[in-house]
Write a protein that binds this DNA or RNA. Structure first.
Lengths: 233, 233
DNA sequence: CGGATTGTTGATTACTTTCAACAATGGTGG
DNA sequence: CCACCATTGTTGAAAGTAATCAACAATCCG
């Protein structure tokens, strides 16, 4: 496993993709951040693949914004099974809490870089900075919208529908091209409430049906977005 | 179906329970609301059982606080199946949205009374009323916490685990006594991602196992909270 | 008293998990 | 550079769970 990276260092896995376009989930945000969007932030922090950013029960002193790589937030049930609540890509915020401690862990799916934002700086900023308060509320509501959609997916859908939705979500931005999956089959399974075997089988099925092509385990190309949308239900 | 009720009228179903203690979900909030908690509210509105409070796509001009009865928020998938996102009991808030329209419908599970709060009055209150802004954020975060727990339940749990969790949640306040279920088996199924048959069978199973007693279809008494907690996983 | 709605139970089917074997990939050290 | 080993992913067969189809019971209402 690679050591923790400094902000300016290259990502250890990036060299593997040198002949291809770099995978989207490693591309840093392009636009310069608008000033006064969310102030009080600390310098970016880097995390090696599979390292923990914070753990369930840790003091929730910061929110985080992803500026490079992919993060997962997860939780373990009493019997030890992992549930992945969400994946966060570049530009997304995570780490929102109601109380003083984190209810979920956050881990680096790939090597990644995040910007911590002091919680007290933004949470109570209403009086001094109305824009920040609204920003924060907006991010929290986005999380809520996603959580609702995820619930519906988990509650009402078959394995095929779950995978179809997942692939469409992953490939929402990159029209037509292949997707580089940053996460393992285990990650996907824990996110969709399926076993790795079912994830694998279902992907194979989608390939047989002509909806996708499995160019490699971690590289999938969408052949028919329409077919996936149909399967999604 | 009973007509919409005025604020001061009795609930149509309440007479059925005249010889028993009134079911918790029909008891109005006791304490006088703290002043300046969330101002800008309108007079309470009453809704008859199964009537719609707002629908998917409606302009989201208000948040709502439940002061009597039980509300469900739900959504339909393309194939027409209903997913219930949450049940809201007395004292709880619902109707939070990111955008200008509701993404979910809200319906009266029982006859109920809700207080609408002007969205613009609270959402942008940061400058003039910092407490309200925090209150709003707190409610939104509570919704988020619940949505996360619901996702985990739907993703990782068997029918028995889902029902055990559901019953424990429902009976969280009333220690030892019987629970009056305000919702149908269909509601429960749509909330837990199960069919009505499975809900019914699983409840019967829990009774055989000695964890609960089915005094009537809508009246369940918890015999062993510990047993349910074990099953919950 | 019907008729409609809601809930229960049984038999069968379909889907996902589990258990198991094996293939592919990546990293390490000789 | 290649052999080796650990990790990750795929596929098959059997078992288990929930859905579906179907019949019937209980309750509510007019």
């Amino acid at each position: 496993m690679s050591a923790a990276l400094t902000v300016k260092s290259e990502f250890s896995r990036e060299t593997q993709f040198v002949r291809q376009a770099p995978p989207v989930w490693l591309v840093r945000e392009q636009a310069a951040p608008r000033r006064a969007e969310l102030a009080h932030h600390l310098p970016p922090m880097s995390f090696a693949q599979d390292s923990g950013i914070f753990a369930e029960g840790d003091a929730a002193r910061y929110f985080y914004k992803v500026v490079g790589g992919v993060v997962r937030s997860c939780r373990f049930s009493q019997d030890g099974r992992r549930h992945i609540d969400a994946f966060y890509k570049v530009g997304e915020m995570f780490g929102f809490e109601l109380g003083a401690v984190h209810e979920l862990s956050a881990e680096a799916v790939t090597d990644c870089v995040v910007i911590p934002l002091r919680r007290q700086g933004v949470e109570l900023a209403g009086a001094q900075d109305e824009t920040s308060a609204m920003q924060l509320y907006t991010y929290a509501m986005q999380s809520l919208t996603r959580a609702r959609a995820h619930s519906q997916l988990l509650g009402r859908c078959s394995a095929v529908q779950k995978l179809a939705s997942f692939l469409l979500e992953l490939s929402a931005d990159k029209q037509g091209q292949a997707i580089e999956l940053p996460m393992t089959r285990q990650d996907i399974g824990d996110y969709l409430g399926l076993t790795i075997e079912t994830v694998s089988r279902t992907l194979s099925q989608l390939e047989k049906d002509g909806a996708i092509t499995l160019q490699a385990a971690r590289r999938i190309s969408i052949k028919s977005r329409a077919a996936l949308a149909d399967l999604k239900g």
